[in-house]
């Protein structure tokens, strides 16, 4: 058991090392940073001086170790454009993204699992069929179209919700939350729904497929033959067995939510890390791009680590190392 966890952690470190190398190589491949920093009128001497100051003349390996050493301490240098520490910028923007991802993950999980179980049990009902056909919309339409559609309907036509931005923010220490005010909730709800739709559909269809399979299993038939109630059969015996594969996908998808948030944040002008990343790409602001890359990788790795540990909690066959 312990060796299992240690092995997973070692794998995670390997992944992070690979990602850091890729992030680092951004500095060398995405244009000359000095050009981005100085104006047109800078002299050759100025350029040389800045190169030396930034350590860009050192051997590649030295530069990488330095980058890695700083990155581990959370220091990704100064943004080329805003001239402020990248770590500080991310720290400012992170709460917005995390809250958005959290709300959309909750929507995706609750609605996805609920509707998945429902459509799995009552698979021939008219409601199940209409849920399934509407859910196709969720996968087939790109996120920005859905976002714009929602803005048009709820913000422009009905005028119920704001079209963009993050209003009603309350500061708790350095963390800015929108959970404490009505305005905050009003502004988070559209982007959260937009972001959740794709994942929701995936989860719904997966849970349904798993439910259909599990309901055919002998132990379900045996549970029926013992006269157990439908509720117990559906939610205790069946649901638990559908969860193992579902959790894998959910793990990958929560990582995906953060990655996809780039588009949603752009559509809704949501001041999170995704929007910051897009702006950084526009200006070739390499430190931000590198830091964002590492950050997303870290989230993926952590979520998957948690998923692996969750398996062990849910499935005793893995826990005991048997079969």
């Amino acid at each position: 058991m312990l060796s299992h966890i240690l092995r997973r952690i070692a794998q995670s470190i390997l992944v992070m090392a690979a990602v850091s190398l890729i992030s680092f190589s951004l500095f060398n491949f995405v244009g000359d940073p000095v050009n981005n920093m100085v104006g047109q009128e800078a002299t050759r001497e100025d350029r040389v001086r800045i190169r030396q100051e930034l350590g860009l003349d050192d051997p590649i390996f030295t530069q990488y170790t330095r980058f890695l050493g700083n990155a581990i301490q959370g220091d990704f240098g100064l943004s080329y454009r805003i001239k402020r520490p990248v770590s500080l910028l991310i720290k400012e923007r992170l709460p917005a993204t995390l809250e958005l991802v959290f709300v959309s993950a909750v929507i995706a999980l609750v609605v996805g699992i609920g509707a998945g179980v429902y459509t799995g049990i009552k698979r021939n009902g008219w409601l199940s069929k209409s849920i399934l056909s509407t859910s196709l919309v969720g996968v087939s339409l790109p996120t920005f179209i859905i976002g714009i559609g929602l803005i048009y309907l709820f913000a422009v036509t009905l005028r119920w919700l704001p079209s963009s931005g993050r209003a009603g923010v309350v500061e708790i220490g350095w963390w800015k939350t929108s959970f404490l005010t009505v305005d905050g909730w009003r502004s988070i709800i559209l982007p959260a729904i937009t972001l959740s739709l794709f994942q929701l559909t995936m989860i719904l269809r997966l849970v349904r497929a798993e439910m259909l399979e599990v309901m055919q299993a002998d132990y379900i038939k045996f549970a029926r033959a013992r006269g157990l109630s439908e509720r117990s059969i559906n939610f205790v015996h069946a649901l638990k067995n559908t969860l193992v594969p579902v959790i894998t996908i959910i793990g990958l998808n929560i990582g995906g939510l953060i990655a996809f948030s780039v588009i949603t944040e752009t559509v809704f002008q949501w001041p999170g890390t995704g929007l910051m990343f897009i702006q950084a790409v526009d200006f070739a602001d390499v430190p931000i791009m590198a830091a964002y890359l590492c950050f997303v990788a870290l989230v993926f790795v952590l979520v998957n680590l948690v998923v692996d540990l969750l398996y062990v909690v849910i499935d005793p066959r893995i826990r005991m190392g048997g079969r």
Binding site: A217, D218, Y219, K221, F222, A223, R224, A225, R226, G227, L228, V236, H237, K240, N241, I314, D315, P316, R317
Partner: peptide
Amino acid sequence: VRGDRIGMIFQDPQTSLNPLL
């Protein structure tokens, strides 16, 4: 009636029991 008055036993004991409980 099922379980209380009529009990059933199925063929494959490997699959008749819920593996997670």
